[in-house]
Nucleic acid binder design. Structure first.
Lengths: 123, 123
DNA sequence: CTCCTTATTAGTAATGATTACTAAATATAG
DNA sequence: CTATATTTAGTAATCATTACTAATAAGGAG
């Protein structure tokens, strides 16, 4: 895998973001520094980086989001406001899980209604 | 929500299946009994049922799969053969998890290479 | 440093899963 | 049984993602 300015930029954007960016978000961020980068390039880089486990692909809505690999965490998705909250509690001891194979990665996702939206409803 | 033969059939198919069927799979199953059912109807019913938490929507590949609600379980996805294994160990005590809201549902997904594919590789 | 090979890119077209739309059909409350 | 609102089949449209191609650029060998 060659070091290109496009790939470095995509990785940098993901590693420096605390949000859950999708391909389009990352594309627009990229264009601030590389105005000619193409969306296809962003998609290809995202695929390469997640295959090599340099970033994490998340499936929440109709599109995929991407997270840095910095720290394992879970997610709580609010069905009302569609916000994704990071949950940093250690939930699973992966070494103890018995699966019929070798685990590369795992993902814990909670779905529900966040406190902000619950409070709105009670008005 | 009215009781229609289409909706009853979709729910029945999901509840009686041990696989992880996608919309197209369910559509073809449906057509065995209702040859005129349309794919759009299947999609609409799948959305209604999962919104009402009568079935569970799973996001693994480029398309969504659907599971019955019968028994909470996790999944192990093999990146080589794309098979989805059910994991029935209790991994998480949901009551103890602190999230900023009310949890309706959760999902634990492991990704890696299954034993079958690991053994193939070693030949 | 220069050349050469091969990966990568920008731009665009194509794909595939899902949703939107509409007139006709059907469930169910009264 | 009748009226009304929901649901349906069939089709067109949408949206995220992938495929394709000629041009560009990374980086190893000389």
């Amino acid at each position: 895998m060659r070091t290109t300015k496009q790939r470095k930029l995509v990785l940098e954007i993901i590693n420096n973001s605390h949000d859950h960016l999708n391909a389009e978000d990352i594309y627009y961020e990229c264009r601030k520094k590389l105005p000619n980068i193409s969306l296809g390039t962003v998609y290809r880089i995202l695929n390469q980086l997640s295959e090599r486990q340099m970033i994490k692909r998340l499936k929440f809505e109709s599109y995929d989001c991407f997270d840095s690999m910095k720290r394992q965490h879970s997610h709580f998705y609010c069905v009302k406001c569609h916000h994704i909250y990071d949950i940093f509690d250690e939930l699973i001891n992966v070494d103890k899980i018995k699966v019929p194979g070798k685990i590369n990665d795992y993902d814990v996702k909670f779905v529900g209604t966040c406190d902000v939206c619950l409070n709105k409803k009670e008005d």
